[in-house]
Structures are given as C-alpha cells and as structure tokens.
Amino acid sequence: MIAYSVRRLLGAIPTLLVLVSLSFFMMRAVPGGPFDKERQLPPEVEANLRAAYHLDEPVYQQLGRYLLGLAQLDFGPSFQYRDYSVTELVMTGFPVSLRLGGSAMLVALVVGVAAGCFAAFRQNSAADHAVMGAAMVGVSIPSFVVAPLLILAFAVHWHWLPAGGLGGGSIANMVLPVVALALPQIAYVSRLTRGSMIEVLRSNFVRTARAQGLSPTQIVLRHALKPALLPVVSYLGPAAAGVITGSVVVEQIFGVPGLGRFFVNGALNRDYTLVMGVVVFYGALIILFNLLVDLAYAWLDPKVKLQ
C-alpha cells in the first residue's frame, strides 16, 4: 500500500506541472492586468512595478521562475495584498476553510448516511418520501439563498448566533456557515446512500443474514453499510476537496476568511500569483483526496486490488 501511495504521489507531479502551466498561461491570456486601475499609473511606476513582479521578462522565463519557487514551496508575492506572500495567505485561509469544510463534511457524512439508511429501510413509505423530498430540496436550493435565510432567522430575528465573521474562532460563529455548507452535501450523501443501500439490501448475502435471524441494525452495521458506502466514498473525495478549499458564496456571505474568497477576489483583481497559489493547492488536495478514496475503496471492497 505504501509503495502504491508513493507511486501515485510521484505520478501526480506531471499532472500538477500541466495544471500549473495551463493556468499560468490562461491567467495571463485574460484581458486586463493586475495594475489596470481606474486611475492609470505613471509610466515609470508601472515599469518599476512590472519589473518588481518580473512581468517584464519573457513568459517562459516567468513560468520557469515560478516553478523554481514552487519547488521550494514559495508561491511568490501577492499582487493585490502587497504586505503578504501568497504562501502566507494560503496558510491563513486554509486552516479556516479546513475547519469549516471539515466540520461540514463530517456533519454531512453522519447525517446524510443516517438519513439515507433510514429511507432505504422504509423504501417507498411516507418516511422515505419525506426524507428524499427534503434531500431534493436541499440539492436544488443554492447556498446563496439558504445562507441569508439562516442569518435572517438565527442572527437577525432571534439573535441566537452571530451573522458572520470569525469571532476569534468561537463555535457560535461556525454554526451557521457549517450548516449552510453541509446542507447540500447532506442531501447528496443521503440520496447516494439510499440508492446503494437499497441495492445492497437486495443482494444474496443480506438475504442470508436475514435468514440467519439477524436484526435489521445488525445487518446494516455489520454487513450492508460497508459495501453500501462505496459510491458515497467516491463522491466524498472530490466533494471534500471542494468544500475544504472553500465555498466562495458561503465565505462571502458570512465574511469568513477562507481560501475560496482569495480565489475569486484574486481572479477579479488579476492577482496572478494568488490565483495560481490557490489552484496549485486545490490541485494537490484533489490528487491527495482521490488517493485516499482509492485506499478507502480497497479497505471497503475486498475485490479491489491496489496495483
């Protein structure tokens, strides 16, 4: 397994190189540059700025310089947030996104799987339709609707929870953004769980277990859950990477300083280095999570062999 993981991680390097180069050129191909402002810069200052950020060099040289820095985990200076390096910004944004996204994924997994199993066991009953209906609503209502509604109810109307901000990292400040992030994930996870659980419950080994007189709880926990989780796990990898690197909408509405906000503001400001930094970080995270998913697969399903 270790040899397999090392092989996979080494294989990720060319993928990341392609990702970096592509986004490097795409970013620069977009019209408008980091120094385009309503008030134009004096030509001398613009020339100095371009030189300070090495924008006056040929593009391939810039890319080489960037890759060299990347090899030393140096993402370069931010164009917009001038007092900070991109590495510093990513490192301030990531823990926040990780905490929020990680909590949201955990909530989604626990609640989603439980709801999915519950519905599968009562297939086509009123309870099943209620849970799945709720899930359908959860999938279809976007977070830019859910988040303000949550604030309106819990912060503005009842004053139970703060409407936004980090609040020094207190739990109260995390509740609403975590719920807003988790709701659509709960919906997806419960639908996936229900679907695969129904399939597993029809399989021969579950029928055998039933014939042996095991209780439904025992059947689910000991036999059915593991195989039923396979599609959930394969969904979870990229979803976790997405949620952890931040949801722009939720971060903006709650004023949370996560990675997603850096990404979008970086793109709007043409902050080349910041966008690149987040892209590389996101790319690496996706690769890592996909690897974890494959490892989890091998553990969940004895038919899968890691090669």
Partner: peptide, 18 residues
C-alpha cells in the same frame, strides 16, 4: 474594520448588531 465586499450580507450583519 471588517471587509464586507458583499453589500447585502453587510446589511444582515448590521441588523444582527455585529
């Protein structure tokens, strides 16, 4: 000072007394 680039969200935070 809080960055509040989302103007409608800023009003919500104001109404919640944040």
């Amino acid at each position: 000072f809080y960055p509040t680039e989302n103007v409608p969200a800023e009003l919500q935070r104001y109404r919640a007394n944040d």
